[in-house]
Design a protein around this nucleic acid. Structure first.
Lengths: 217, 217
DNA sequence: CTCAACATACCATCTAGTCGGTTTCCTCTT
DNA sequence: AAGAGGAAACCGACTAGATGGTATGTTGAG
């Protein structure tokens, strides 16, 4: 992404066709709008099946505007990944830094990542399905950041195992991959119209994780 | 897919450029070769980024041959899905039909699906990433079959909960989605070069599942 | 003589990205 | 206050290259 954003809301409809009542054409800044629209469309139809033209049309801007703010279509996708990873890392760091017992922190983090994932289901859909559409460099970057996230989570589990709060019959890496597999897959089956609230799902998921780590009597 | 296959191995290299030592050009029937090549390429680069031309070139056949056996590129993908679902369903039905205690069957099925998934990692990669590239009809079909699979697995868990062998503090549907999320995601992190064998991973995964279902004392 | 099993040339369509041009806005000078 | 100057913010027509699919032709077996 290119940094130079004036940040303002812009003077709205230059062309007469602008409909100021649909959300995408509203008072948000152009790059923001593009990112929002791209997220929705990528999640709906996939990266390769979403054309740049469609993105800019939906966002009520022109191609020129988009290529002014973003280097490429790829860059748009990379930005989405960056946003997701930033958010998740921040939340996890916050929880990991708390002072309660480790089992409590793990449970909290486990439930929280579920709720956050559901709150951004489109992001989740994209991020587990579109990694290979990024350039090799950007893929590496994403993977590295994700690894750091996993590492932090893993360190909590290891601590629990060392303290005896968690069983250690399964290596912590496996546990982490196991759990985040489940989390990432929320986007394939969870529907907001369903009966279960995000918090309930989060509770269940955290419970499953903690129970699977419960030490034997 | 079109049924008319002679099934034979075919008269090999028609064109002079045929290299009979690379596996794809070998003695397998043309549709089989196409399916094998498509599976590898779809897993490697994604469905949309793999051109029909590339598939037929790699399989050492021509476009005409391919469109003779398959209706479309979509059809190729649909065939891959069908193959995966057929295999997994067969295995699960076998295990579910055994006579041991339910916890044993669940554990067996859980470990087996991991091993099978790892044995067909390309299939797994494709099936969790490319569903949306299928036509709506075929998507529905795949989903229906997958649902039937999940239902069978779920019924075992429900039985265990009713018998008191499993805890029931988490609904069985959630448990199933939770577990298969983990399984599907194996393809994103498991590498054959790693230290852990498929059976070991299967053991760990089954253990995590069973432990999370262990009833409280 | 027929039909499956291919082969080959071809096309209509779409797509990411570019590039020269124009408008809008801020700033600095006079 | 006026206005010149410059840069950022956009516009939109255009291109070069793919791509899925088809139409038509050929071959060899039964």
């Amino acid at each position: 992404m290119i940094v130079r954003t004036r940040g303002g809301t812009g003077a709205a409809g230059s062309s007469a066709a602008g409909s100021p009542d649909i959300p995408e054409a509203a008072e948000t800044s152009v790059p923001r709008r593009l990112l929002a629209v791209a997220t929705r469309l990528f999640a709906e139809k996939g990266f390769d099946r979403t054309s740049v033209q469609e993105i800019v049309d939906t966002a009520n801007v022109t191609k020129g505007a988009m290529y002014h703010y973003f280097d490429s279509k790829d860059d748009l996708l990379a930005e989405i990944y960056a946003r997701v990873l930033r958010l998740q890392m921040t939340r996890l760091e916050e929880i990991a830094g708390e002072s309660g017992p480790v089992a409590e922190r793990v449970g909290k983090a486990a439930a929280d990542v579920v709720v956050t994932t559901i709150a951004n289901l489109d992001d989740a859909t994209i991020s587990f399905r579109s990694l290979h559409q990024l350039s090799a460099d950007k893929q590496r970057e994403v993977r590295a950041k994700r690894r750091r996230y996993h590492e932090l989570f893993r360190s909590m589990i290891v601590q629990g195992q060392e303290e005896g709060a968690f069983a250690d019959h399964v290596p912590a890496d496996i546990v982490v991959d196991f759990y985040f597999g489940s989390v990432h897959h929320l986007s394939t089956w969870y529907r907001l119209e369903g009966e279960l609230s995000p918090e309930e799902i989060g509770g269940y998921y955290a419970r499953l994780l903690l129970d699977s780590l419960r030490p034997p009597e």
